[in-house]
Amino acid sequence: MRAVVESSAAAAAARKYGDVDLAHFERYLRGAGPAGDPSPVPGEPVGEERSEELTRADLNSWHEVVRNAAHNRTLVDVLARLDAQIRVSAPWTLLSGTGDARPLASRVNEHMDITRAIMDRDASSARALMQQHLDRDQEARIGQLVGAGRRAHPVI
């Protein structure tokens, strides 16, 4: 459900973003850096100096920027409620040993592709890219939950 609603938000953002939203998107593109360097702001720590929790928070804040750029309060409210439910039912865990093979750099690259589609006002591509991004995240969360269940209940 989140993927459907948030992909609609990405499409709406491509049609409706304003100057302030554009500044947020440009800042993200300037700061996200090359693949493997998920630092969102020039001068901030990168690589091993940067914790996964901080990087994940940065990636989550990007989703808020996209949602707000849609200029649709209902979308923002629905997505906030869905996020709260997801955090309880399928929280992210640290990547190592959890069944999540997608490095954070791949998520950054996906965000950059979606951001470019939005900035190009390509609503169709923004929608499709966001749907693909969230489908991959859903698969990763399921992998983590399955992996955690296997570790908690070893088969004998």
Rank of each mutant, 00 (worst) to 15 (best):
A3T: 07
V4C: 07
E6N: 05
S7M: 03
S7Y: 02
S8Y: 03
S8R: 02
A12R: 10
A13Y: 11
A13N: 06
K16P: 03
K16I: 08
K16A: 11
G18T: 06
D21H: 07
L22S: 10
A23G: 11
F25D: 01
E26W: 02
E26T: 10
R27G: 13
G31Q: 05
G31F: 04
G31S: 03
A32D: 03
A35E: 14
P40E: 03
P40N: 04
V41R: 03
P42G: 04
E44Y: 06
E44A: 12
P45D: 03
G47L: 10
E48S: 06
E48D: 14
E49C: 05
R50D: 09
S51N: 07
E53F: 06
L54E: 13
L54H: 12
T55S: 06
R56E: 07
A57M: 12
D58R: 01
D58L: 00
L59Q: 12
N60T: 15
S61E: 13
E64P: 03
V65C: 01
V66R: 04
R67C: 09
A70Y: 02
A70V: 01
H71E: 02
H71N: 09
R73D: 13
T74H: 11
T74Y: 05
T74V: 12
L75R: 00
V76Y: 05
V78W: 05
V78K: 00
A80N: 07
A80G: 14
R81T: 09
L82K: 00
L82C: 06
D83N: 12
D83E: 15
D83S: 06
Q85F: 13
Q85P: 00
I86Y: 00
I86S: 02
I86K: 00
I86Q: 03
V88P: 00
V88F: 10
S89P: 03
P91N: 09
P91T: 06
W92E: 14
L95V: 11
L95F: 10
S96K: 13
G97V: 06
T98G: 12
G99N: 08
D100K: 05
R102C: 07
P103N: 09
P103Q: 01
P103Y: 05
L104H: 08
L104G: 06
A105I: 01
R107A: 14
R107M: 12
R107N: 07
N109A: 14
N109L: 15
N109S: 14
E110A: 13
E110N: 10
H111P: 14
M112D: 15
M112R: 13
M112H: 11
M112S: 13
D113N: 13
R116D: 07
R116F: 12
I118K: 02
M119I: 10
M119V: 15
M119R: 04
D120R: 11
D120A: 15
D120S: 14
D122I: 04
D122E: 15
A123Q: 07
S125T: 15
R127I: 04
R127T: 07
R127K: 15
A128S: 09
Q131Y: 13
H133N: 10
D135L: 10
R136K: 13
D137P: 01
D137N: 14
Q138P: 00
E139W: 05
R141C: 08
I142P: 02
I142E: 09
I142M: 09
G143A: 01
G143Q: 01
Q144W: 08
L145W: 08
L145R: 11
V146N: 06
G147T: 09
G147H: 05
G147C: 00
G147K: 03
A148E: 15
R150K: 09
R151Q: 11
R151D: 12
P154F: 05
V155Q: 13
I156W: 11
